[in-house]
Design a protein around this nucleic acid. Structure first.
Lengths: 218, 218, 218, 218
DNA sequence: AATGAATGAGACTTCATTCAT
DNA sequence: CATGAATGAAGTCTCATTCAT
C-alpha cells in the first residue's frame, strides 16, 4: 500500500538507547522482555512509584543486581514499558486496519478497529496515562513522537477519505487526534461507563459517534 | 427548568472529612486554601511524588509542622487539591451553561462552553489526570462521585434536547461521557495539538465534532 | 509515738523545686493537682512517652500553654506524678500502721497493711516501676530518697520487734527492703497471679510468707 | 525425674517471628546477635526511647539501612533483646539447678542459685523491668509466656519438695512467683541495698528469707 | 493568666543503586 | 553474568516548647 507505506512509518522515530552492562544482544533482549512483562504487571497494580525494583525483580525472576545489568535505572524500566505498550498497541491497530476497501468504508472500519483494540488494551493504556508523565523529558519526547507518528497515519487515512466528501475536513490533524483520543475514554472513564453501558453499546456508540462527528455519517 | 433544577445538584456528594488539629474554622479554611494553592503550583511542576511537604510549605509560607495542623497527611493535601480543582472546574462550567434558549441551541452552546472552560483549566485538569489516581480508594471514590454527578447533569440536558430530534439518543449516559471527556483532549493532547492547530481551530473543531457526533449537527 | 516521730520523718527529704510562671501559690497548687491527676490517668494508659502534653492537657482541662505556666517541662509533670504517687502510697500506709499493740503483733499487722495498701495502689505502683526511671537523675534521686526514708521507718519497726525474738535480725535494712519490696509483686506479677490465685489467697499468702521469712512466724 | 522432665520444658512457648529481608539464616543470626548485643548496651544506658536506631547501628557496626534488612522495626529489636535476656537468664538458672539431691536440699540450693544468677544478670533484668512494657501486646505476651513457663518449673520443684513437709504448700503457684520475683529486688532495689549491705549479706539474707518464708526453714 | 498556632528538630523507615563475592 | 547485602539519602510525620494575642 502506497499511502500507508509513505504515511505509516515516515520519520523512523529514534528510540532512546538504554544502556546495558551486558554485551550479548540476545540475552539483553530476553532479560529486558522479562523485565517489561513483570513491570507492566506490577505497575498496573501499584503504579510506578509504589512499585519497587525488588517487586519487579521478584515477578521477573531476577534479583536487583541482575536487573541493573540490563538497565541503568528504574526509570529505564518505565521507558521500556511505555515503549512496548505503545508499540504493541500501535502494531495491533495497524494490523486491524482495513486497507482494501474504498476510503469511506475504510474510515468506518478503521474507527471500529481503533475502538476494539483500545478495548482490549485498556489496562495498558491506563498505565500509560497514569505513569508516562513520570518519564524524564527525553524519554517522554521519544514516546510522544511515536504517538504523533501514529496519529499521522490516521491523518492520511482521513485526508484520503475526505476527498470523497462534498466538503473536505477542516483540520485533518485535529480529526486524527480525536479519532485516536476519544477511544481512550474506554480506559479512562471505565469507572463510569461500566456501570451504565454494555461493552457492545459502548463500542457501537463511540464508533458511531466518531463516524458522525468526523463527517462520514449516514 | 424543573428537571434541571433537580438534576444539576441532585445528590450533594458527601465530601471526605479532612481532620485538623485547629478548631478555628476560618483559619482552617484560610490555611488550607493557601496549602491548596501552593500544592497545585508544586504538583503541576513536579507531580505529587516528587513534591515534598517542605516544597509545599515553602510556597504556602508554612513550616512543615504548621501544615500538619491543618491536614493529617500529604495525601490529604492531594485530596484537597483534587476536590478544589474538580469543584472549580464544575462550578465554572455550570455558570457558563446556557439555560435560557431552546434545547437544541442549548446543546450547541453547552458544548462550546465545556470546551472553553476546559481550555482555561487545562493545567489543572492535566494535574487531575496525572495524580488523582494516587488518592487512596476512599478519596478517589468521592472525587469520582462528584464527576459522575457532573456527567449526570449533561445527561439530563442531552435527554431533554433529544426529544426535539427524530430519533432519541441511544445512550444518553454514554453521550454525556463523550461530551465531558473529549474536551480533556485539550489538556491531554496539547503536546500534539499546539503544534498544528490554533486555539480557535481547536475549540471550533472539537465543538463541531461533538455537536455532529451527538446528532445535533446541521 | 516517739519511735515513729524520730524514725518516720528523720531527714526531711528535700523536694525538688518545680518552677512556675505564676505567683499565686493557691492557683499553682490547684492547677498542678489537676495536672497530676490527669497525667496519672494518661500515663497509666499509654506510658510517659506515648502520652503527649496535649493528652494530659485535654484530660486536665488545660491547654498546652497553660500547662507550661505551672511546669517547665513534660518531665516536671512526671516528677510531680511520681512524687504524688509515692507520697500517697506512703501516707496511706502510715495511716494503716498499727502503732498500739505489742511489737510482735505490730509486725504482723504491719505486713498485712503494707500488702493491702499495695493491692489498692497497684496501678500507681506499676506506673512508678515503668516510668520513674525516665526521670532525670536529680528528680529520681529525690524520689528514691523518699522511698529510702519510707524503708527506714520499717527498719525501725523491725528492729524494735526483733528484740522480742531469741536472735535479732541479721540485717534490718535488708529485711525492711524485702518487706516493702515483695508486695510490689502484686502489681508487677499480676499478669501471672490473677490467673491462678484469688485476691485473698494472694494477700494471705504474701503476708504469711513475709512474717515467716522475717522470722516472726509461729 | 519424670515430672521435672515433663514440666521443665513443657509447652515450648512459640517465639514471635521476626521477619528479615535476607534469606541467609546464618547471616541473619549473626547480624541479629550483633544488633542485640549493641541494643542491650544502648538500652541499658539510655532506655529504649532515648536510644535511636542510629545509636544501635553505630555500636553494632551497621548502618540504618542494614539494620532494617534484619529487622522490621525498632520494636523488633526490643523484642529480640527481651527474648534474649529472658532466655539467657532462664538457661543459666536451669543450668545452676541442683537436680540430684533430695527435695529439701534441692529447694535450698535452688533458692540460692536463683539469687546468684539474678545477681549476675541484674543489669539485664533491670532493662526488662524498665522497657519490656514498651513491647506491643503480642510480643509482650510471648515474653510473659516464657516467664510463666519458667515460674511453672519452680512450681513443680516446690510441690515436689512440699511432700516432705508436714503441711503442703497452700499455693505452689504463688510460692513459685515469690521465689522468682523476690530476687529481682537485687536489681530493682540496688540503689538502696548497695549502700547498706554487702553482696554476701544480700544473697544470704534473701536466700534465707525465701527458704524460711517458703516453709523449708530450720 | 489562658490560649493555641507556630515552630523545627529529630525520629523512624524505605528503597534505588552499588559492589564484593 | 548473577547475587543480594550494604549503603545512605531523603521523606513523612510527631510533638515538646515558645510566644503573640
Amino acid at each position: 500500500m502506497n499511502i500507508k507505506a509513505r504515511a505509516v512509518e515516515p520519520a523512523p522515530v529514534r528510540r532512546r538507547v538504554v544502556k546495558s552492562a551486558s554485551k550479548d544482544a540476545d540475552l539483553i533482549r530476553q532479560r529486558r522482555q522479562a523485565l517489561i512483562t513483570a513491570a507492566v504487571h506490577v505497575f498496573k497494580e501499584k503504579g510506578f512509584h509504589e512499585a519497587t525494583v525488588r517487586d519487579i525483580g521478584r515477578v521477573a525472576g531476577m534479583t536487583q543486581g541482575t536487573i541493573y545489568n540490563y538497565v541503568e535505572s528504574k526509570e529505564d524500566i518505565l521507558y521500556l514499558v511505555c515503549d512496548q505498550i505503545v508499540g504493541e498497541y500501535q502494531e495491533e491497530t495497524r494490523k486491524a486496519l482495513d486497507t482494501s476497501s474504498d476510503p469511506l468504508t475504510r474510515v468506518r472500519s478503521t474507527v471500529r478497529a481503533v475502538c476494539e483494540v483500545m478495548y482490549r488494551h485498556q489496562e495498558e493504556i491506563l498505565l500509560i496515562y497514569q505513569d508516562s508523565h513520570l518519564l524524564d523529558a527525553r524519554s517522554r519526547k521519544v514516546i510522544l513522537a511515536r504517538v504523533e507518528e501514529f496519529i499521522g497515519m490516521f491523518e492520511v487515512i482521513l485526508k484520503d477519505a475526505s476527498r470523497q466528501l462534498d466538503r473536505p475536513l477542516k483540520s485533518p490533524h485535529l480529526s486524527a487526534n480525536i479519532l485516536t483520543f476519544l477511544p481512550t475514554m474506554i480506559a479512562l472513564r471505565r469507572w463510569s461507563l461500566n456501570r451504565h453501558v454494555t461493552v457492545e453499546e459502548m463500542l457501537d456508540g463511540i464508533s458511531e459517534f466518531l463516524v458522525r462527528g468526523l463527517g462520514f455519517g449516514a
